[in-house]
Write a protein that binds this DNA or RNA. Structure first.
Lengths: 203, 203
DNA sequence: TTGACAATTGACCGATCAGTCAACTATAGT
DNA sequence: ACTATAGTTGACTGATCGGTCAATTGTCAA
């Protein structure tokens, strides 16, 4: 028996994997338990409900990605290159999902938020929280880009919100069209939205 | 008994209403039948399955909106004013939903596409089809705007796809944040993305 | 060795799920 | 008046849903 409980972690990652590939509504607690190799009694020993598990899985997923994001948005990297890296990473991630499952799966946070924001307030709140965290990365890169004169001055927070809207929308279109095309020009489109001197960005 | 079957229409509109307010997965066939005042036997007399009903409801919903969209995107209206009207309409629609249900519900097509694109291929295809139709409106307005010199030249189809991504993303953010704020600057942001001489647009 | 506690198990619950069916009723064309 | 057919009804299915529970097993500290 493990005290740094391994079953709990397996439930978290399995839940995120299954929900990402399909949806919250079409994944059952039994599905998650079966795939994680954990009995249902254990599930409810660790989590009071399906939606609580989902919230925990969202947070765990974020935590697992944060180191990469920190590296990607390091102040050591030129600000516009950070945005490039972010878009490239999203495209690569979707390519991997496509190779593994044969479908474009989009962003799990966005998908969960779209599906459940009017239904499960705790999931909506977690999605909103993670949304804000992403925007914070973009905001910081945009502010640095402005101070270096790479893009026109303006409210960096609002610019980041705009940019992330475009980003989310492209991921969603990619999922609905089941095609990576909407993601290929994402970099250029975000720079266009930010009014960046494009040439400066593409190294 | 009606031959232009009223029960069928009630099922379609009720389904769209319930799914829009919550989600596909959390609305049952029984829920739809109860609210529509139709027995389940009749439901399956008209539709072979829940997902077939949903596809039909998506199409019916589009058909009901098309006259308004045709008017909104009439060539009689200045091209950038069409885009303004489109954004205004979206904001008004969300305001109404918010007033009626106390939550920002987003766009039902987008929500359905986000939830089910990896699960129900027929729903994904219908969502993709309707997505394309929206983009066609935007594309035409953008092409006209270009020919009038209101925005820079460029591939109108791609510009429309960009614009619709931004639009979708903003609606999704609004739903997740349960706030209309992301929609308030939508007009200005789309013009920014299109590189429009802003002053020309705002009458 | 013992006691406390975390983790695990599998059987179990009532409710609800999508979908079926045979019987019944109304309508329209002849 | 007769028939074919479209619409309606309510009872029914087996499977699955999220969640519960008492009993058991393993772990660690005193």
């Amino acid at each position: 028996m493990k005290s740094e409980c391994e079953s709990k972690g397996r439930l978290l990652s399995t839940a995120m994997e299954l929900i990402w590939e399909s949806s919250y509504g079409s994944v059952s607690v039994d599905d998650i338990c079966r795939k994680a190799g954990v009995k249902k009694g254990s599930f409810y020993h660790f989590f009071p409900s399906k939606s609580d598990l989902t919230v925990a899985a969202m947070e765990a997923d974020w935590k697992s990605k944060q180191p990469d994001l920190d590296a990607l948005f390091s102040p050591q990297i030129p600000p516009l290159a950070r945005l490039e890296g972010f878009c490239d990473g999203a495209l690569r991630g979707q390519e991997n999902k496509l190779a593994a499952y044969g479908k474009v799966c989009g962003c799990p946070m966005i998908t969960l938020g779209a599906e459940l924001s009017t239904q499960e307030e705790n999931i909506r709140l977690k999605a909103a929280e993670i949304l804000r965290r992403y925007i914070r990365y973009l905001e910081s890169a945009i502010r640095d880009a402005q101070s270096e004169g790479l893009i026109p001055e303006g409210n960096p927070r609002e610019a980041a919100e705009r940019g992330f809207s475009l980003f989310q929308g492209a991921l969603l279109q990619a999922k609905i069209l089941n095609s990576l095309d909407p993601l290929r020009d994402l970099k250029a489109n975000i720079f266009r939205l930010l009014d960046a001197r494009a040439e400066a960005a593409f190294v």
